[in-house]
Simulated scan of single mutants.
Amino acid sequence: MKSIMKAVRPASLQFVSRTIATRSLPSIRSQLPLPRYNCLRPASSLSPAVLSVARRSTLGSNSRHYTTGHISGPGAPRPPKDNKLKAWPFILIFVTGAVAFAAVLENRKDKPKPMPPTDTSKSLPKLRDDGPVFSPDDVKVIFVLGGPGVGKGTQCANLVKDYHFVHLSAGDLLREERTRSGTEYGELIETYIKEGKIVPMEVTIVLLENAMKKSIEAGKHKFLIDGFPRQMDQALKFEEVVVPSQFTLFFDCDEETMTKRITERGKTSGRSDDNPESMLKRFRTFNETSMPVVNYFDGQKKVVKVDGAKSVDAVYADVKAHIADRLK
């Protein structure tokens, strides 16, 4: 009998284990106590198969529902992703754009707006191209150059009185033209003078030529042209179209002295260019455009240089001493 029972028990246990594992697993799971309640039945009362199934079920359930700590390893679940929209990148982009936009506006505000180019091609006179209108043997021309406020007009007045020159100031001719009623070039001249720029040479040369013709008709053939030429193209074109010059009388002076003289003159002159802003522009224009003219004629030995910073009488004494032989 004992031998029969020994033979039947293993088979019965295997059948019971398979049945429990395949058909009664949910009921076994429901009957198994959870570890946290500390009421497990003794392991010796269960078969190895039941214990194996129970352990797998319990561990799987615990890992899915009762895990509270961090689990690492290949099979560990991934932490949930933070799907909240981050705001700081958009704030950074907005602030950067605002700063860049403000910088552009500030740059445009500080930068002076360029003046639109003036189309003067239709209003400018056409200069002759068949040689000078006067002969240097009959008409004598002396260019008088120097910075603004150096005293060119005063010295020319003395030369007119003692040597019977006709004094033609390019600046005075331009100012008269712009104020004369019905003038053709007045508005153009006004714009250039206020900006401290050089008036187109076509206008200046025509005004000088017309004034010289009137004087020649009156029997006067010696001319002091004050404040002209202001740049190389004017010098070359005047000698090509009107008459070659005898020499250039250049008054040299520092800007500080000239500034004081212009400031004092501006109190009574009524000239629109006798102001600090125009003075700076005129100084810069003279150094950049008129000094090359002086250097050009100096290379031809046609420049008489006089210190213009002295008193009026001292300057005139130097002028007479330097040009006495040339005026014979």
Rank of each mutant, 00 (worst) to 15 (best):
Lys6Thr: 09
Ala7Pro: 05
Pro10Leu: 10
Leu13Trp: 05
Ser17Asp: 10
Ser17Pro: 02
Thr19Ile: 07
Leu34Ala: 13
Tyr37Ala: 12
Ala43His: 09
Ser52Cys: 08
Val53Met: 05
Arg55His: 10
Gly60Thr: 13
Asn62Trp: 12
Arg64Glu: 00
His65Pro: 04
Thr68Ala: 11
Gly69Asn: 12
His70Val: 04
Ser72Phe: 12
Pro74Arg: 14
Leu92Thr: 15
Ala98Ser: 12
Ala100Cys: 12
Ala102Pro: 06
Ala102Gly: 14
Val104Cys: 13
Glu106Ala: 15
Asn107Phe: 13
Lys111Gly: 07
Met115His: 09
Met115Glu: 12
Asp119Pro: 08
Asp130Thr: 15
Pro132Met: 11
Pro148Phe: 01
Pro148Ile: 01
Val150Ser: 15
Gly151Tyr: 02
Lys152Cys: 02
Thr154Pro: 07
Ala157Pro: 03
Ala157Trp: 03
Lys161Ser: 15
Lys161Val: 08
Asp162Gln: 14
Tyr163Met: 07
Ala170Lys: 02
Leu173Ile: 06
Leu173Val: 04
Glu184Gln: 13
Glu190Trp: 06
Tyr192Ile: 04
Glu202Tyr: 01
Val203Trp: 01
Ile205Tyr: 00
Ala218Gly: 08
Gly219Tyr: 08
His221Ser: 09
Gly227Pro: 00
Gln231Ile: 00
Met232Trp: 09
Asp233His: 03
Ala235Asp: 00
Leu236Pro: 01
Glu240Arg: 12
Ser245Lys: 02
Leu249Thr: 01
Glu255Asn: 04
Thr259Asp: 08
Gly266Trp: 06
Ser272Trp: 06
Asn275Lys: 09
Pro276Lys: 06
Glu277Pro: 03
Leu280Ser: 13
Asp307Pro: 04
Asp307Ser: 11
Gly308Thr: 03
Ala309Gly: 13
Lys310Val: 04
Val315Ile: 07
Ile323Leu: 11
Arg326Glu: 00
Leu327Met: 13
